[in-house]
Design a protein around this nucleic acid. Structure first.
Length: 852
RNA sequence: GCCGGAGUGGCGGAAUGGCAGACGCAUCCGACUUAAAAUCGGCCGGUCGCAAGGCCGUGUGGGUUCGAGUCCCACCUUCGGCACCA
């Protein structure tokens, strides 16, 4: 057969995907001119990867749609900045070093190399010229610089405190890095313990109130809620009780408590201090000393898990001391118990057992008195055995009872009156408390940014002078974990003169939490080589805040909270102008293993993208990931279905490059559909194309990639019947093919470019022709709105809300016309069973419902 | 316990309060082929019926509405987050 030779070769992505990747880079297609002000800027950021060695399919799941956004926005006329880099410090590199005896740097560099190759194989349109790598001294010197600025302003400070410690990683953790009620390490899931250490902190609590505001931000509700809960704002009052004089103790000290319910002050029948409370040592009565000391000791030894154990059986001991309630002068006993936390509020509470479940349990256990101070408005007293819940609204609304100064007041007036009373008498004041703790950033590890401090016996901790930065990492260290930083073993590096007095000093040996590295990296992308400062303010003003950020919700109260804090702190240093880093955030879902579990090497359920790309091509994998379902949903991995993407791309290939071909097995091949002439066929083609491209644009804007792909499939399906027909290859056809390719280009960039290049070549424009242009440098097609409407409409006809028939009417048909036609339909008459219609509802010309 | 998300065919999923199941996978049927694969065309929620067509159907039970997968109330299941925070 002679046609055999002319037959189009099959779609084979491996033949051209790498070629286009190389060509795009050669053309500098994705390099952004940051000074170009001719187009509106669009800063698109995706969470940078940790160089663990291999990209898995989860990385692709985040980055593929993000890349489609980048490409789409370029086509829409934006100057898109889409950078990438590596979060290259961290424990896995150090663990690899311990296990395999290679330097963490070597391991990291090799992994980054592999991951760069993998990212390129996706066809991702990153601007590699702005790459940032955190383990590069050119980056981390600015961590140190910022740290010193924070230190100068008191944002960074050092204190001794009980801190969270992972016994497996042998490292301290920030509170945010301890997960769940089991209190496990975020990295290795080992239960965390407590250690009393002197460590560096960042004063994120100074920004607690500001961090609660998400004004002007388009962030997912769950993340905002999680951050708000994490910050945990409580409105209440601080109240000073006075320690009562006793034989062993003169008394008089203020015993300050925080309460959200000052209106229940008359119901305070005892007080409870955290065992760590400083007053415990002085106020304890001699005869109680032994029991109190034993309890304090036992608490210290108890792990956090035991202390918060599931049984929640209340424990505690009486100190023998008394305190005086400022509102009624009553003497009440002071106890200590571990259910009161030292780190929250003032570390002391007034117990109101009648109205608080925990206090109630404690009172019952130890036989302490219970006094009701709230009662339903209708009653004057309730049984003392049951705590009355704080029911502030509705039928159970309670009023204050046994509460002289605000007797009879209902919430929230009772609160206001109580606070006013306290402020008038000087016994207390309105107060707000947050659950947020300061960010512990010291890590007893090697592979991180050295904290630029020199400890001097005479001057204390002294910042390394800015001109001596960066403090780099010495290579002659012992990585074996000892619970202390490996940097302690680098004696030559360790001992340096004090910058202040010149006396013998020692470097700080802890390194910074790697979350510090990722708390400002998007600013550095704008000027990665800048040697004059961490941030180029002009570029930041032009490009920031980031327009769109994409990444996982697992960072809700870690990276995403730290980054907001950093932005505000950098703003207060005058380094940036804005208060928020990311205007719009999207959290994609998580791809699980085929077994529905989190992907991990130990489970053996990790999907390797290289293998998929080798078999199906990058475009098919990209499309498949976008087509799986809504992007924020994720789900278990299954590769069944990927063949459908290959099939679809094959159809696009055939449609575009062999429009006149016919399939031997197709019964209708070459003919126009029944009842259509060429003009009708072309109109139908144009309508399908314009509708598709209009829908695809709207879907990408709304991050509905699955339906965007479906619309392109619909267009291909609509065109296929015309292949080989008289209209194939005509004007309408070619316009439709161009739209199909443009719509596909953001999501499947290689095949779109390959077909586009072949079509240009067929038109006499080869790749070296100055007229040649990449499809990715072309504008998004303009949609002719007039083509979106059909010339005739199909109106569903319902009787009593049930579908009975459908009606074909001209697009311009009026409601009375439609109604007349509908009422004449035999099926409608049958459904009405002879009754006259009571009412007819026209749903905006889209549907008619006859009520009879 | 508290806060947030999700429950739709065999499967992934679609649907501004208006035709439930778009698009795809799998299965099945047909065409092309000596044959298979690939490709092309088609069936594809359940049920009754020869058919035309009817009835049922979006986790459960109520409600609002001419009309509910969609809104409201209660509940069940499931996935995340938080959890003695005074």
């Amino acid at each position: 057969m002679p046609e055999q030779d002319e037959r189009l070769e099959r779609y084979d992505p491996t033949a051209f995907e790498p070629r286009w990747q190389a060509r795009w880079e050669e053309l500098g297609l994705h390099r952004t001119d940051l000074r170009d002000r001719s187009k509106p800027p669009y800063y698109l950021l995706t969470m940078w990867p940790y160089p663990s060695g291999d990209l898995h399919i989860g990385h692709w799941y985040v980055k593929t749609p993000t890349d489609a956004i980048a490409r789409y926005k370029r086509a829409k006329g934006f100057n898109v900045f889409y950078p990438v880099g590596f979060d290259a410090f961290g424990l896995p590199a150090e663990n690899a070093a311990i296990k395999r005896k290679i330097h963490p740097r070597e391991w990291t560099v090799a992994n980054m190399e592999n991951m760069r190759r993998q990212l390129r194989s996706m066809g991702a349109s990153f601007d590699w010229s702005s790459e940032v790598v955190t383990c590069d001294p050119a980056y981390f010197r600015w961590n140190q610089w910022i740290f010193l600025k924070f230190y100068e302003r008191g944002v960074a400070y050092r204190k001794q405190a009980p801190v969270d410690w992972c016994p497996s990683c042998q490292v301290t953790l920030a509170r945010e890095q301890v997960e769940g009620v089991d209190r496990i390490c975020w990295r290795c899931s080992t239960p965390v313990t407590k250690r009393d250490l002197t460590q560096w902190f960042f004063k994120i609590t100074d920004y607690a109130e500001e961090l609660l505001s998400f004004d002007g931000l388009n962030w997912p509700e769950p993340v905002r809620t999680m951050q708000a809960n994490w910050i945990g704002r409580s409105e209440g009052a601080e109240v000073d009780f006075a320690v009562a004089p006793a034989a062993h103790h003169p008394g008089g000290e203020a015993l300050r408590v925080f309460t959200t319910r000052p209106d229940t002050l008359y119901g305070a029948t005892f007080m409870v201090l955290a065992p760590e409370h400083p007053l415990v040592a002085t106020i304890t009565a001699p005869e109680r000393r032994a029991a109190v000391d034993a309890y304090v000791e036992a608490t210290k030894r108890k792990s956090e898990i035991d202390r918060l154990s599931a049984t929640r059986e209340k424990s505690g001991v009486d100190t023998g001391a008394f305190a005086v309630n400022p509102v009624n002068g009553e003497r009440i006993p002071v106890w200590i118990a571990d259910y009161v936390l030292a780190g929250y509020g003032t570390g002391a509470i007034m117990a109101v057992p009648a109205h608080d479940e925990r206090d109630h349990a404690f009172a019952v256990r130890f036989g302490l008195p219970i006094r009701t101070v709230m009662a339903p408005a209708a009653l004057t007293a309730t049984p003392d055995a049951v705590p009355l819940p704080y029911d502030e609204k509705g039928d159970g609304a309670a009023i204050a009872v046994n509460s002289a100064a605000w007797e009879g007041a209902a919430w929230p007036a009772s609160f206001e009156q109580a606070v006013a009373h306290l402020e008038r008498t000087g016994a207390g004041a309105r107060s707000i408390t947050y659950r947020l703790r300061d960010w512990l950033i010291s890590r007893q590890r090697y592979w991180g940014t050295p904290i630029p401090i020199i400890h001097c016996p005479a001057c204390g901790p002294v910042g390394v002078p800015a001109e001596q930065l960066p403090v780099t990492l010495p290579d002659d260290v012992d990585f074996q974990p000892t619970g202390e930083s490996p940097l302690k073993t680098a004696t030559a590096w360790l001992n340096v003169p004090c910058p202040k007095c010149g006396g013998p000093g020692q470097r700080e040996t802890d390194t910074m939490d790697t979350f510090v590295d990722s708390s400002w990296y998007w600013y550095r992308y704008l000027s990665p080589g800048n040697e004059h400062g961490p941030i180029d303010r002009d570029l930041v003003d032009a490009w920031c805040p980031v327009d769109q950020y994409t990444g996982g919700a697992e960072h809700a109260v870690m990276h995403l909270l730290y980054s907001r804090f950093f932005t505000k702190a950098l703003r207060d240093l005058g380094l940036v102008g804005e208060s928020e880093p990311f205007t719009r955030l999207f959290n994609q879902g998580q791809i699980l293993g085929a077994d529905g579990e989190r992907m991990s090497k130990s489970r053996g359920n990790v999907q390797d993208p290289d293998e998929l790309v080798g078999r199906h091509g990058a475009d098919a994998v990209r499309l498949f990931l976008m087509f799986m379902g809504p992007w924020d949903q994720g789900g278990p991995w299954s590769s069944s279905g990927i063949s459908g993407m290959v099939r679809f791309l094959g159809r696009v290939w055939t449609l575009a490059l062999d429009p006149l071909g016919r399939e031997p097995g197709d019964p209708r091949a070459g003919r126009l559909p029944e009842g259509q002439d060429a003009a009708a066929a072309e109109a139908s083609i144009r309508r399908a194309a314009h509708r598709a491209i209009s829908g695809v644009g709207a879907d990408i804007e709304a991050f509905r990639f699955n339906t965007a792909v479906a619309k392109l499939m619909e267009l291909a399906n609509a065109l296929f019947p015309y292949r080989g027909s008289p209209v194939a290859g005509g004007g309408a056809w070619n316009e439709a093919i161009a739209m199909l390719l443009s719509g596909l280009a953001p999501m499947a960039p290689h095949i779109a470019e390959e077909i586009h290049a072949r079509l240009q070549a067929a038109a006499g424009i080869a790749g070296d022709d100055p007229r040649w242009r990449s499809i990715h440098a072309r504008p998004w097609p303009a949609v002719d709105e007039s083509l979106l409407a059909e010339s005739t409409r199909e109106i569903p006809v319902q009787v009593n809300g049930k579908l009975r028939d459908r009606l074909q009417v001209p697009a311009a048909a009026t409601e009375p016309e439609i109604e007349a036609l509908a009422l004449a339909l035999p099926k409608v008459l049958a459904a009405l069973e002879g009754r006259a219609p009571k009412k007819v509802i026209h749903a905006g010309g889209r549907l008619i419902n006859i009520v009879g």
